[in-house]
C-alpha cells in the first residue's frame, strides 16, 4: 500500500539531481504512504569496490554490531576503505572481489543488511521523504538513476527494515520498489529457498527482488526477466526494478495499482501518480503515458 517513483537520466544530462528529484516526486505522493520512505540511489562505482549499508540500531547495540561487521569483513578479506554511522545505519565501503552472496549471508549474523552494490546505496527509514532527507541528505545525491518509495504499513510493522526499496538479498546492485501484493509469495519463496537462497524479511517485495536477481544472474536480460515475472508472480502489482545500468517496470494484468510515466530525450520518470511527475516539471502539462496492464519495459543508461 504505497507510492513508488523511479528516475533515470539519459546521456549526459545533469539538469536533475537524482536525490532531489526522488524527494520531490515522493513529496507528491506522500499521501499514499505516511509511515516510511526509502531510496535506492545509484552513484559512481569503482572496480572491486563495494558499498554496504546495514541496520545497526543505536547506542551500545550499534557499537557491538559494527564491531562484528568489521570482524566479518576482515574474515572474508574485505578491506575497509571508508565508513560512517548515519541514523541507525552503518555505511561502509570495502575492497572486495569475493562472492557477494556468501558475504551478505554471513553479515546477516551481525546486522540486517540494507544493500550491497558497486554503485547501489539504499537508504530507508520511518517518516516522510522530508524526514528521511533531513537525516540522510538525500537531495544532495547526484547519481545516474534511482528508485523511491513511500509506505503505508498494512500487514507488517512500521520499522526501517520493513521499508522499501528492497535489495535483492545476495545480488549486488539489484533493487526494487513495489506497490501491491504477491499472493503466491510462500510458494515462490519455497522454490527459491530450495535453491539455498535466504530471505531476511517476510515482505513480498524482497521476494520479487530475489526472483529477478536470480534470473539475471543466470544471464537473462532484464527485459526478459520482467516478462516472465508477469506470468510467474500472482497477485496485484506495479513494481520498478533497477540494476547498475538499467531501470524497468512490470505491471500485472489487472493493473489496479497505478503507474504513470514520462519520457524525454533527457530522462525517463515513472511514478504511481502524475502529480509526482509534475513535481519535476511544475506548471507544465506533461505528455504522460500510462503503461498498459500486463506490460513491462526497461531503459538503459547510455554510457
Amino acid at each position: 500500500m504505497c507510492g513508488i517513483a523511479g528516475i533515470m537520466l539519459k546521456g549526459s544530462s545533469n539538469s536533475f539531481k537524482i536525490g532531489e528529484a526522488l524527494v520531490n516526486m515522493l513529496n507528491g505522493c506522500q499521501h499514499r504512504g505516511p509511515d516510511s520512505t526509502g531510496f535506492a540511489l545509484y552513484g559512481e562505482s569503482q572496480e572491486n569496490t563495494l558499498k554496504l549499508r546495514l541496520f545497526v540500531g543505536q547506542g551500545d547495540e550499534s557499537i557491538a554490531a559494527i564491531k562484528s561487521i568489521q570482524q566479518l569483513l576482515d574474515e572474508h578479506g574485505a578491506l575497509i576503505i571508508d565508513d560512517e554511522q548515519v541514523g541507525e545505519t552503518y555505511r561502509v565501503t570495502v575492497n572486495y572481489t569475493g562472492d557477494i552472496l556468501k558475504i551478505s549471508y554471513a553479515l546477516e549474523h551481525a546486522a540486517k543488511v540494507v544493500s550491497i552494490g558497486n554503485s547501489l546505496d539504499i537508504i530507508k527509514d520511518v517518516g516522510s521523504a522530508e524526514d528521511v532527507d533531513e537525516r540522510y541528505h538525500i537531495r544532495k545525491f547526484q547519481g545516474s538513476h534511482g528508485l523511491g518509495h513511500v509506505r503505508l504499513a498494512t500487514e507488517s510493522d512500521v520499522k526501517p527494515e520493513a521499508a522499501h526499496p528492497f535489495w535483492a538479498t545476495g545480488f549486488a546492485d539489484v533493487a526494487i520498489v513495489h506497490n501491491g501484493q504477491i499472493t503466491n509469495y510462500w510458494k515462490m519463496r519455497r522454490r527459491l529457498e530450495q535453491r539455498d537462497y535466504e530471505f531476511h524479511t517476510d515482505n513480498d517485495s524482497e521476494l520479487i527482488a530475489v526472483y529477478l536477481a536470480d534470473k539475471l544472474s543466470q544471464g537473462d536480460e532484464l527485459k526478459d526477466v520482467l516478462k516472465t515475472s508477469i506470468d510467474d508472480l500472482d497477485g496485484t502489482f506495479s513494481f520498478l526494478v533497477s540494476t547498475k545500468d538499467e531501470i524497468g517496470y512490470a505491471k500485472d494484468r489487472l493493473a489496479v495499482k497505478p503507474m504513470v510515466m514520462y519520457e524525454t530525450d533527457d530522462l525517463v520518470a515513472i511514478a504511481s501518480e502524475e502529480v509526482s511527475l509534475n513535481k519535476l516539471f511544475p506548471g507544465q502539462a506533461l505528455n504522460t503515458k500510462e503503461p498498459p496492464p500486463g506490460t513491462y519495459n526497461t531503459w538503459s543508461r547510455s554510457i
Binding site: M1, C2, G3, H31, R32, G33, L152, T154, N179, G180, T236, V256, K257, S272
Partner: peptide, 9 residues
C-alpha cells in the same frame, strides 16, 4: 478503493 493508498484519496 483497491488498497489503503486509494482509500486515503
Amino acid at each position: 478503493i483497491l488498497g489503503a493508498d486509494d482509500l486515503v484519496i
